[in-house]
Amino acid sequence: MGFGAVLLELNGYQGMDVINVMIIGVFQDFRSITEILLKSIPLILIGAGLCVAFRCNMWNIGAEGQLYAGAVAATLVGVSFPGLTSWIYVPLVLIAGALGGAFWGGIAGYLKVRFQASEIVTTIMLNYIALIATSWLVTGPMKDTKAAYPQSARLLREAWVPDLISGARLHIGILIAIALALVLYVYLYRSSAGYAVRVVGINPHAARYAGMNTGRNMMIAICISGGMAGLAGAFEIAGVTHRLYQNISPGYGFEGIAVALLAGNNPMYAIFSGGLFAVLRSGSELMQISSQVPQVLVSIIQGIVILSVVTFGALRFFSRRRG
């Protein structure tokens, strides 16, 4: 925050005023709080999923692409089956999204396990490919022929995720996101399957000697994180926009990395760090409206948060070893 204020002052904005507007503004009324919660849904989902991948030492930088893959899959299902009731249709759309994301993540996982291709580079390349593919789909095969803009047809009414509170855009995805983050916490820290994922991440040789299948656990970890990102994409489509656009995500996939790191790669804490980043994002949007401060400031803050977290973590590690 302090750094943000200094940066603003140096560039001719009223630094502290802007920060004040941002902090007070985001909590000003009920509606703005529901908007923060709405933004926290994809961040919690992606952040919690990435915790699993990072714990397994799978550096999945591709949550953005996996989100798009999930959004495309959810849209395909969401426009195709008229006559289903909501009770069946909504879960179907969400599962399609999760599978789409898991598939996109799984490609990188497979290339890593089978060919030792660095998942850092492949997931980033798959981000670009997913974005370009989405742009092709909404201008070509999936384009709504009645619309002037590149966008898909609207999802059928029965496929929409129900609102949590009538009158606000906030939908029940927030409850599912929190529940899934807790499930992943239990999985990672209270189950033998999750234990195996963590051991592979800490020491793959030891894991192999203990009879664990390292490749399989790496695949599981990246597919879980991809699936969570895909689910986030499905929620954006079925809960917020109801259509597929070229840029449905303002970078949630990259922000999720910061969410996971701030949470110390613990899915339970991703609920809180996801909420914090949602506040920052809402605040930066407000700053842009009220004082024309470019919204991109939020990624600078994210970068600084990550550096602070790793410094803190490294220092703690250092003092523990000394002591």
Binding site: L7, N11, W59, I61, I120, F254, I257, A258, L261, P294, V296, L297, V298, S299, I300, I301, Q302, G303, I304, I306, L307, V310, T311, G313, A314, F318
Partner: peptide, 21 residues
């Protein structure tokens, strides 16, 4: 002695944000 991948990711965010800002 922080993780190189994590710091690299932070550098990318800083670079993208700072230049765009």
């Amino acid at each position: 002695k922080a993780n190189q991948i994590v710091v690299g990711a932070a550098i990318n965010l800083l670079g993208m944000g700072l230049t765009a800002f």
